[in-house]
């Protein structure tokens, strides 16, 4: 059984002008046990909405989200609470991810305490072990978040997410708010924890190099849809969808020689509004190779080599 199984997920928000904002508009993906799936895309593509729907922080407008076989869509409060013991989340901003008026020990121990899994000395021991597991000192449990740096706070957030030993970890831009050198520490920690616990991970990021570093498979989102889903190496060495190609070309690589030799794939214009997505292929307004068919006919999912692509021309 897959740890996560999302089928035909749609999440629409009420829009200002009447038309709903189709933040996520028909997304299907699955994550096998122990697998890390990367979800990349630019701001507004719906990747964070998918991650929130995965842990039940947003309810789907349509479609199904199953964690370990349990349906989240329309689930009761008790079911949701039970699922969240199996699916935990790491947020982008470590500063606002921790209650400033709670010690970090209380924060890390809270999932265990409120679910009645541990208390007193046993809770203290478990919290200490969790803090040590993420590279912090157990005797710092009595300190408050402001006494820690950004990287350390993100470690605390990770420790809290690990407290219930989840089967699925959803990481929503976990290193975007961190400094370059701290980013490496957190990425190393995530890779290490994953190897040790074998949990499945949904890793949401806008940074293609980071996603490549930690993920086994990668899904590329554009305007509420997945346009390409492929094993990591296939996606990075032979991207099929023109948007994937453009994204890869746009990543500034920290190497002047390769970076300046790289062919430019200029994308024209801006991302259209998700309240009013273009007909046909949603990418056609910016696509360098779009033909008439792309403007009218929506491309179906099809397998091209190891990848699945939604493009008429891939």
């Amino acid at each position: 059984m897959n740890t996560l199984e999302i089928t035909g997920l749609k999440v629409h928000f009420p829009g200002r002008g009447g038309a709903p904002v189709r933040a996520v508009d028909g997304v299907s993906l699955s994550i096998a046990a122990g697998e890390t799936l990367g979800l990349v895309g630019e701001s507004g593509c719906g990747k964070s909405t998918v991650s929130n729907a995965t842990v039940g922080l947003l309810s789907p407008t349509e479609g199904s989200v199953k964690v370990l076989g349990t349906e989240l869509a329309g689930a009761s409060r008790e079911t949701l609470r039970a699922i969240r013991a199996k699916a935990q989340m790491v947020f982008q901003d470590p500063v606002t991810s921790l209650n400033p008026r709670m010690t970090i020990g209380e924060a890390v121990g809270e999932p265990l305490l409120v679910r009645g899994l541990a208390r007193g000395a046993a809770l203290r021991d478990q919290v200490g072990a969790l803090l040590e597991e993420v590279g912090l000192r157990a005797d710092h449990a009595g300190r408050y978040p402001h006494q820690f740096s950004g990287g350390q706070r993100q470690r605390i957030v990770i420790a809290r997410a690990l407290a219930l030993r989840p089967a699925l970890l959803v990481c929503d831009e976990p290193v975007s708010a961190l400094d370059v050198s701290v980013r490496a520490q957190i990425l190393n920690l995530l890779v290490e924890l994953q190897a040790r616990h074998g949990m499945s991970t949904l890793f949401v990021s806008h940074d293609l190099a980071v996603v490549r570093h930690v993920c086994d498979r990668v899904a590329v989102m554009y305007l509420g849809r997945i346009v390409e889903l492929a094993p990591r190496d296939a996606l990075y060495s032979a991207p099929r969808h023109p948007y994937t190609k453009a994204l890869l070309a746009a990543v500034p690589e920290p190497d002047p020689v390769t970076q300046r030799a790289k062919p430019r794939v200029p994308l024209e214009g801006e991302i259209p509004s998700p309240a009013n997505p273009p007909p046909g292929c949603r990418f056609h307004t910016r696509c360098p190779i779009a033909v008439d068919r792309c403007r009218s006919e929506e491309p179906a999912w099809r397998a091209v080599g190891a990848a699945s692509v939604a493009c008429h021309l891939a």
């Binding site: 740096s149 990287g151 370059v180 050198s181 980013r183 490496a184 520490q185 990425l187 190393n188 890779v191 190897a195 293609l208 190099a209 980071v210 490549r212 570093h213 930690v214 993920c215 990591r232 990075y236 890869l248 990543v251 690589e253 920290p254 190497d255 390769t258």
Partner: peptide, 24 residues
């Protein structure tokens, strides 16, 4: 040197250990 080595690149080995600058 460490800063450059700590950045994940499109050319490095996935899931390999990135260089880390200890402390703060």
């Amino acid at each position: 040197a460490l800063l450059l080595a700590s950045i994940p690149r499109l050319s490095d080995v996935p899931k390999s250990k990135l260089a880390v600058i200890e402390g703060r």
